[in-house]
């Protein structure tokens, strides 16, 4: 790991904006396109929202976010220590929402998958969930 940050914050909705801004600021030091930066911020927003809405579901707990960089690849992990996901494959299906709120779109994992190069989810019931995502900065430059 060339450099990394680790941030802990309570599962308050107002911290979603803080978390994505922090991840964006960390990533912005690399050669990265505006679109890639927006992708990272969006994916972080989804992961943190999942931790708040599903991991802690109304109760409050801590969320840990790590952003690291190796070469030009950014790795972000978002961990909660909440309920855990019973069926990860089901939770990751587009339009599936584990929330009772009928206006949750169920697109969180789909957005993370589409906007990042890789996504992995580890979860244990009653222990918590960790989402790990990577994205290579400047991939858009490579193609040109």
């Amino acid at each position: 790991m060339d450099n990394y940050i680790k941030i802990e914050f309570p599962s308050l909705s107002c911290n979603e904006a803080f978390a994505r801004a922090a991840a964006g600021a960390f990533a912005a030091r690399l050669d990265i396109t505006v679109e890639e930066l927006a992708d990272i911020k969006t994916a972080v927003s989804e992961a943190v929202t999942n931790a708040i809405v599903h991991g802690y579901a109304g109760s409050c707990g801590m969320i840990e976010m790590r952003c690291g960089v190796v070469g030009r690849t950014i790795e972000i992990t978002v961990s909660d220590f909440g309920r855990g996901i019973e069926d990860i494959a089901l939770a990751m299906q587009p339009l599936y929402s584990g929330s009772d709120d009928e206006e949750r779109s169920g697109m969180g994992f789909t957005v993370m998958q589409s906007f990042m190069d890789s996504l992995s989810v580890e979860s244990e019931l009653g222990v918590g969930t960790t989402v790990t995502m990577t994205k290579r900065a400047g991939a858009d430059f490579d193609e040109k």
């Binding site: 994505r20 927006a38 911020k41 969006t42 927003s45 989804e46 929202t49 709120d101 206006e103 949750r104 779109s105 169920g106 697109m107 969180g108 789909t110 957005v111």
Partner: peptide
């Protein structure tokens, strides 16, 4: 200038 999937639900 920013929307995530919560906006899709809205």
């Amino acid at each position: 200038d920013f929307m995530d999937s919560s906006g899709i639900g809205v």
